[in-house]
């Protein structure tokens, strides 16, 4: 399938998700269950995307583990996203030198 079709589908779906409530809705969602579900969704999605994929993200399981541990420790101590992300890559690179 053409890459352009995939990109168009991604773009349209993502735009509509943002546009429909922004342009049309005014009222709040009342269902507590649905609001709770939406609250947890980002964390659940990111978790499923990260584990176990992060261990294959550098092409070398050892450097990936070093990067993952780095990211875990730094985010545990609430460091900013950018610091966590770049340090994980930096430590993976350093581990790859050995």
């Amino acid at each position: 399938m053409s890459v352009a079709i995939y990109i168009a589908v991604m773009a349209i779906v993502t735009y509509l998700i943002r546009m429909i409530p922004f342009a049309f809705f005014r009222k709040k969602i009342k269902s507590r269950f649905f609001r709770s579900f939406l609250y947890y969704i980002p964390y659940a999605v990111l978790s499923a995307m990260t584990i176990p994929a992060i261990f294959y993200s550098t092409g070398n399981i050892v450097t990936a583990i070093v990067g993952t541990v780095t990211a875990f420790v730094l985010s545990y101590f609430n460091l900013p996203l950018i610091v966590v992300a770049l340090s994980a890559a930096g430590m993976s690179f350093v581990a790859g030198l050995f």
Partner: peptide
């Protein structure tokens, strides 16, 4: 290769 982990690192920070 090492930079391939950047996005996942950001996800963990979230």
């Amino acid at each position: 290769g090492a930079l391939g982990i950047v996005l996942y690192g950001m996800f963990m920070a979230v």
